[in-house]
Each structure stands twice: as structure tokens, then as C-alpha cells.
Amino acid sequence: MQKRTKQRIRIAAFLITVGMVLEFASLMWIGPSAFLVFIGGGAFICVGVGLYLFMLFIAGRKQPHNEAPEISAS
């Protein structure tokens, strides 16, 4: 697995986790501020999901020229 791919998965997972935590927090009280927190969480989730989909469908197909393929011991 490419190092860059791993890094992208980590970043996407982190962004979605933050978004999920914010979304959960926004359900704790009723009011316009809760809705704003929900919108903020949604933005994190959208960026995270977007990054994951980018990695999956676009970046995943490209083979980087400057990185050597990993060689397994077996």
C-alpha cells in the first residue's frame, strides 16, 4: 500500500470522526446553535468523504512515477 494512500485514509478517517463527534454533540441540546454545530460537523464529513472518494476513484488509479513499488519479503 502506498504511503500517500495510507496518509489520505488517515486524514479522511480523522475528518469524518471529527464530523461524527460534532454531529453527535449537536443532538445533545435543542436550539439554533445545535443546528450550526451540526452544519460544521457536516462540513468535516463532506471533506472527509470527498477525500476518501477521491483516493478511491481518482488517485487510486494513478501510479506515481517517483515512488518505487513495495517489495514483499516473500
Binding site: M1, T5, K6, I9, R10, A13, T17, M20
Partner: peptide, 9 residues
């Protein structure tokens, strides 16, 4: 996600 965070492979 936490699982993927620590084991992205």
C-alpha cells in the same frame, strides 16, 4: 474509523 486510523492497510 478509529480502527482504520490505526490500521489504514
Amino acid at each position: 474509523l478509529l480502527l482504520l486510523e490505526f490500521k489504514p492497510a
